[in-house]
C-alpha cells in the first residue's frame, strides 16, 4: 500500500482512477441502496449484462461505446421493468433471456469490429486505470443527475421501495417511479462499467449497500454509508492490486466481497449475542 500511496502522488492516471472510483461510488451508493431494499438485484443484473449489446453496436458503428452503453441500459431497464410489471409469471425467464441475448448481440458486434479482443475484455472486466480524464466530467454529470432525482423524489422512491400497494393508494404513480428507478439503476451500471466492467458490476452496486443496511436505520443513512464504503473499497482495491499488478476491477470486487462476508459474520454474532 505504501508504494501505491507514493505512486498516487506522482502519477496522474492513478489520481484519475481514484477520482473515477469515488465518482462511481456516489451514484452506486445511492442507487445500490434502492436495489438492495427493493430486492431487485436480478433485474439490475439483467440490465447490466444487456448493456453489452449497446456497447458492441456503438463500437461497430463508430460511436462512443459509453453512449451506446447508456442507451442500451436505459432501453433494457424500461423493457425489463415492463416485463416485471406485466409478465409476473414469466418474469425470471424473460429477464434471464434478455440478459443472455444482450450479451450475445454485443459479442457478435464486437467480433465484427477490428481490435475487438482488447475492448471486449475491458468492457467485461473494466479497467479503472485507463479511464480518460474527460470521462470524469461525464461521470460527475451522471452523479449529479442521480442525486438530483433522489433528492427531489425521495418520498416517492421510498414509498415505492417500501410498499408499492400503499404508495399507489396515496396517489404515487408507481409504474412511472418504478421505471424511473430502473433507469437510474441503468445509469449506475454505466458509471461502474469503467471501474469493474459489466460482469462484476452487481457486486459493487449491491455489496456496499448490503453492508450499510446492516448498520443504518434509514435508507438515507444507508446511502451515505454505502457511498463511503464503496469509495473505500475502490481505493483499497486499487492499492492492493498495484504492487502485484492484479486486475484492479477484480481486486476491488474481492475486497468488497470479503468486507461483506466479514460484516455479515459480525452482524450475525452481534444478533446472537443479544438473544
Amino acid at each position: 500500500m505504501t508504494d501505491f500511496v507514493a505512486a498516487l502522488v506522482q502519477h496522474e492516471f492513478l489520481q484519475t482512477a481514484v477520482i473515477a472510483g469515488v465518482l462511481a461510488s456516489i451514484g452506486c451508493g445511492v442507487i445500490g441502496s434502492y436495489v438492495v431494499v427493493k430486492r431487485i438485484t436480478f433485474l439490475a443484473g439483467g440490465i447490466a449484462h444487456a448493456v453489452l449489446g449497446g456497447m458492441g453496436a456503438a463500437l461497430f458503428y463508430g460511436v462512443d461505446p459509453l453512449n451506446g452503453a447508456l442507451a442500451a441500459a436505459v432501453i433494457a431497464a424500461i423493457v425489463i421493468g415492463l416485463v416485471k410489471l406485466h409478465l409476473r409469471q414469466h418474469e425470471d425467464t424473460t429477464i434471464g433471456a434478455m440478459w443472455a441475448v444482450g450479451m450475445a448481440v454485443g459479442i457478435i458486434f464486437i467480433s465484427r469490429t477490428p481490435g475487438y479482443q482488447v475492448d471486449l475484455m475491458s468492457y467485461l472486466f473494466g479497467n479503472i486505470l485507463l479511464v480518460p480524464s474527460p470521462d470524469l466530467r461525464w461521470m460527475l454529470g451522471l452523479d449529479v443527475l442521480l442525486l438530483s432525482l433522489t433528492v427531489v423524489f425521495y418520498k416517492q422512491f421510498l414509498a415505492v421501495c417500501f410498499d408499492e400497494e400503499f404508495a399507489r393508494l396515496r396517489g404515487v404513480p408507481v409504474t412511472i417511479f418504478y421505471l424511473l428507478l430502473l433507469c437510474m439503476v441503468a445509469i449506475s451500471v454505466v458509471l461502474l462499467i469503467q471501474v469493474v466492467g459489466l460482469i462484476l458490476v452487481i457486486a459493487l452496486l449491491t455489496l456496499p449497500a448490503a453492508i450499510a443496511q446492516q448498520y443504518a436505520n434509514s435508507v438515507g443513512r444507508m446511502m451515505v454509508l454505502a457511498i463511503a464504503l464503496g469509495a473505500l473499497f475502490c481505493v483499497l482495491g486499487l492499492g492492493l492490486s498495484y504492487r502485484p499488478d492484479f486486475p484492479p476491477g477484480a481486486t476491488i470486487v474481492l475486497v468488497t466481497g470479503a468486507a461483506f462476508l466479514l460484516s455479515s459474520l459480525v452482524s450475525a454474532l452481534v444478533r446472537a449475542g443479544r438473544r
Partner: peptide
C-alpha cells in the same frame, strides 16, 4: 407488504 428488515 414490506420486509421486516427494511431500514425504516
Amino acid at each position: 407488504a414490506f420486509g421486516r428488515d427494511f431500514p425504516i
